[in-house]
Nucleic acid binder design. Sequence first.
DNA 1: AATGCGGGGCG
DNA 2: CGCCCAGCATT
Length: 356
Amino acid sequence: MPISSKQFAKQLITWQKIHGRHHLPWQVSDAYAVWVSEIMLQQTQVSTVLNYYPRFMARFPTVTALASADIDDVLSLWSGLGYYSRARNLHRAAQYIATHYGGQFPQHAALLAELPGIGRSTAAAIAAFAFGQREAILDGNVRRVFTRVFAIEGWPGNKAIEQQLWQLAESLLPDAAEIQPYTQGLMDLGSLVCRRGQPDCGSCPFTQDCLANQQGRQRQLPTPRPKREIPQREVRWLLLYDTEGRVFLEKRPPTGIWGGLWSLPEWTAEHTSLAQRLQELAVIAEDAAEAPAPLHAVTHQFTHFHLTAYPYPLAVRTRAECRESASCWVNAAELAHIGLAAPVRRLLETWMSSLF
DNA sequence: AATGCGGGGCG
DNA sequence: CGCCCAGCATT
């Protein structure tokens, strides 16, 4: 017999008040603060977000400040967090709120979910935390708790399973008066106790009620996603540097991998010769006749493919002009203030500190 | 080396 | 609608 809705909420809230998180910087009644934190937390753990959130809020303290900011500055503060479309959507949504809602957040989940980057679960979290609305969330932590406590089989990415979980989430909701500790409790229980690897069932308020625990199947739930082949991709990077300690960067297209971030110019040998590529970049190298030897390869794992990048260092005699916001020469100090993907930042910091 | 995470976009 | 895409940290 699964636990009743009333008992579930009651035991969760009691647990949350004693063992949950209470003093995170975004646990305030400010929709903007809640929103920024929820977007950061979408793909990122609390401990990491704690390193980014305060800087972001100091730089963009209000939704109108964010709306009027330069997207490059937003991406710069997002640099290293990954999933950069989150930052672009955050910026667009801020502009929408400033323009269409006079800088005030809508209070209903359905309206919040219309904003870019806010889906059903994030909308519910903002509505619940900022406005006390009785809305159900369903993030990864919550899915793990539900699939275990109620022994729900099947990959949660499957449509039918997802629907079942949403229905369960709604059926378990307490009164609106208790929505905040309840919602926070679900998140905290999932991340602190009902962990993926080593669930701490001895500390769980549902240890007696949890069907997975009763059946000893905690580690089999939630059902993992079906496995897929992970393709390999290779790319060459041009590491063009001048005599004054600068490197040449190009801005990536707004969508796709590392969208909108600065990166090293790619050189795909299948399409162009090195000479052609340098000409495209309006660069004259010291010795372009000889192909440079690549540095140690940079490897990076994405969920759906593995990337190996070969950086080709090349001293440059005649510098290309900086094309406005599309390419530029930057020095080591400036690297700290622009949006770079984590492996590109690592490569450049290591390489520049050894060279200059 | 494998895994997970919320939402957008495309066909 | 179903499927694919994305970048890190953790384990």
